[in-house]
Nucleic acid binder design. Structure first.
Lengths: 218, 218
DNA sequence: GCAACCTATGAATCATGATTCACTTCTTGC
DNA sequence: GCAAGAAGTGAATCATGATTCATAGGTTGC
C-alpha cells in the first residue's frame, strides 16, 4: 500500500478546510452573501475553485456551516444572558435584547446576511433554526418571569417570536447595505435603548424597573 | 399612414396587460414567488412567453408591479384603521395589528411572499417601501397617542418598526410553506389575540383598556 | 385587396455561477 | 527512486430561467 494518509496530511487537510470556512465567513462579513461566489471564496483561501469541492459537497453545504457557526456564536451570547440565574427575568430580557442589538450594529454586513439577506434555501433553513433558538431562549425566560409574577400573563412563544421580530426589523433598516455610513453612534445608542424599552414594556408588569443599562456583551 | 393603433386595439392591449398582472398575482398567491417563472405566468395568462415582454421590460418590473398592488391593498387597510379618528389611538393600533395578522393568515402563501419569501432585488425594494409605509402608519398613531397621554413616552419610529417586525416574525412561522395545514382556526385566534396584546402592552400606559376585539377587517 | 406596419409567437440564445473532470502534482511506503 | 494512489487545478460543462428575435399573423386606412 504505497500511500496512506498520514496524520500530518490529515492536519493539513483540516487546516485547508478551516481556511475555506474562514474565507467564506470573511467574504460574507465584508461584502455580503451576494458577493460570496465559490470562486471568490476559493481565491481568498488561496486554493482553486475545484478544491472547495474536496471539502464540501456543495456551496449550500459550505455556507450552511458558515452560517451555523456564526449564528451559534450569537445565539450563545443571547442564551447565556437569558439563562443567567443571577439576574431577575426582566434584566435578562433587557440585557439579551441589548446584546443582540449591539452586536448586530457592530458587524452590520454580517448581521444583515445572518438576519435578512436573500440566501440559498439550505442556508435559509439554517437561519430558521437559529430564529427558533432565539425564540426559545426568550420564551424560557418569559416563562420564568410569568411564573414569578414579574411579567404579565401571556403566551411566551408568541411574545418571544414578537420580540425576535421586533429586534430584527428595527435593526434591518440600520443594517441594510443601503444605510451605509449613516449610523452615528448617537443613533445606535438611542435605537438600542428604545428597543430594550419596547421589549420590557411589552412583557413586564407595571412596577417593573425600567432597566436601560449599558452592560456590554459585545 | 396605413396603420394607427385604434382605441379598440389599445383596450385589448390593456386587457392583456391586466391579465398578465393578474396571472402573476394568482401564481404567487397559489404557489409562491419561487413558482412564478415568466413562462408559467405567460401560459396562465394564455399568451406566449415573449408576449410578456411586450408589456413589461423585465420580470423584475412585472413583479414589482404585482407586489406594489398587492402590498398597497394591505397597507390601505392598515392605514385606514390607524388613521380612523373616531377611535382612540390604542384601539386603532389594536385594530390595525389585528387586521394585518388576520388578513395575512387568510392568504398565507401570498402573505409569505409579500413579507418574507426570497425575491428579486427590484421586488425586494418594493417590499422595503411598503415596510416603511406600515412603519409610518403606526408611527403616526403612536405619535398621537403619546401626545394624548394614552401611550408612554418613546420614539415612535423605533416602536413602529418593532411592531411591524413583531407582527411579521410571529406570523412568518404560521405562514411559511413548511407550516402547511397545521394552522387550526383555534391557533390563529390565539395568535392574533396574543399579538394584539403584545403590541398594546408595549406602548400603552397602564390604565389602557386591553382591547382584544373581533372587529373584522378582512 | 393591399401596402404599411403593428403584435404575437416560442424556440434559440444568453448570462450567471455552481459543479465536474481529465490531467498534473504531491505523498507515502518500500 | 519508484509505483500507487491521493490531492489540487481551473477550464469546460451544466443547469436554470430570463430575454431576444426571426417569422407568422393581425389591423388599419384607403
Amino acid at each position: 500500500m504505497p500511500y496512506r494518509t498520514t496524520p500530518a496530511t490529515r492536519a493539513r487537510l483540516d487546516a485547508v478546510r478551516e481556511r475555506i470556512v474562514a474565507s467564506a465567513r470573511d467574504q460574507v462579513a465584508e461584502a455580503g452573501y451576494a458577493s460570496a461566489s465559490v470562486s471568490a471564496v476559493a481565491s481568498r483561501a488561496g486554493v482553486a475553485t475545484g478544491s472547495v469541492y474536496r471539502h464540501f459537497p456543495s456551496k449550500a453545504n459550505l455556507f450552511a456551516e458558515v452560517f451555523r457557526r456564526a449564528s451559534q456564536r450569537e445565539l450563545d451570547v443571547v442564551a447565556a444572558v437569558t439563562s443567567d440565574e443571577s439576574l431577575p427575568p426582566s434584566e435578562r430580557v433587557a440585557a439579551a435584547a441589548e446584546a443582540f442589538a449591539r452586536r448586530a450594529l457592530a458587524a452590520p454586513t454580517m448581521a444583515y446576511a445572518l438576519l435578512a439577506e436573500p440566501v440559498d434555501p439550505a442556508v435559509e433553513a439554517e437561519r430558521l433554526t437559529f430564529r427558533r433558538g432565539y425564540r426559545d431562549a426568550f420564551a424560557r425566560v418569559l416563562h420564568e418571569g410569568i411564573a414569578s409574577g414579574e411579567f404579565r400573563e401571556h403566551d411566551p412563544e408568541i411574545a418571544a417570536a414578537a420580540i425576535v421580530g421586533a429586534l430584527g426589523e428595527a435593526l434591518v433598516g440600520p443594517l441594510s447595505p443601503a444605510a451605509n455610513g449613516r449610523g452615528a453612534r448617537r443613533h445606535h445608542e438611542a435605537l438600542v435603548a428604545g428597543l430594550v424599552q419596547f421589549c420590557l414594556n411589552a412583557i413586564a408588569t407595571r412596577e417593573g424597573k425600567s432597566h436601560v443599562g449599558a452592560r456590554s456583551h459585545a
